[in-house]
Design a protein around this nucleic acid. Structure first.
Lengths: 127, 127
DNA sequence: CGGTATCCTATAGGATACTG
DNA sequence: CAGTATCCTATAGGATACCG
């Protein structure tokens, strides 16, 4: 039998789902501030444009991570809130934050080491 | 004091670091197969091109997650291996895999619900 | 073998203006 | 208020060929 999927990374689907560029900040803000209106979200998520915010909110709503409530008033009022399913991400995010606290400095150090090593190589080749 | 960063998502850096499109599959394969040569990696990571594989390996090497060993033989031999720092990602990946097992079906169901609801809306509007 | 070099396209996302 | 609509650009990544 062929085993073409044996090496496929099993967390790829969840990566695509959760770690698109804007999804984590949006979920994070909703998790920490509770219900939010569109413009509040736009203010709290740094530098996001309304177009992109709409796109990502629709995706999050479709994926069941966020709920959208429309109030037919004048002016209209829309509220976004993290769903039950969305709340299950909290421990996942905590794990990532913990890894970040513990190891991100090492990444920074590794980058500096790599860069200076390459600089020295270049200088040495220059003669 | 201003609090401009208060709402910024603290896991954004680690997301950028770990969840670029190809990094998880590469790290996953290296974690499960041990030392690998360039062409072995290319075979094990489905459909990646040599250009992109090189780019991501360089990034992973610079970030200290992967080590590269060059053997000046003929023909030349290069081996890639996950680093100590890279191995600290294993529990993180396990957390993600666990979330995926537990909740990805709910995401799929939510999508179907969303899509059929929108279809019904459209049909109803059609009349 | 282990990559580069070159060209190309598709998509995400920014800027800006407008609307029910 | 809560989005759309339109236009635009930049980047990631694919295809292919070549090189030390």
């Amino acid at each position: 039998m062929a085993e073409p999927k044996e090496s496929a990374c099993p967390i790829n689907p969840v990566v695509d789902l959760l770690f698109s560029r804007w999804t984590t900040p949006i979920v994070w803000v909703l998790e920490h501030h509770g219900r939010l209106r569109f413009n509040e979200l736009q203010r709290l998520v740094p530098s996001i444009t309304p177009k992109v915010l709409t796109q990502r909110l629709r995706q999050l709503e479709r994926d069941g991570l966020v709920t959208r409530t429309y109030h037919a008033e004048i002016p209209p009022r829309v509220e976004y809130e993290i769903s039950e399913l969305g709340r299950t991400l909290v421990p996942v995010f905590r794990t990532l934050a913990a890894w970040s606290d513990a190891h991100l400095p090492q990444v920074t150090a590794a980058r500096q080491g790599y860069d200076t090593a390459r600089e020295e190589e270049a200088a040495w080749a220059q003669g």
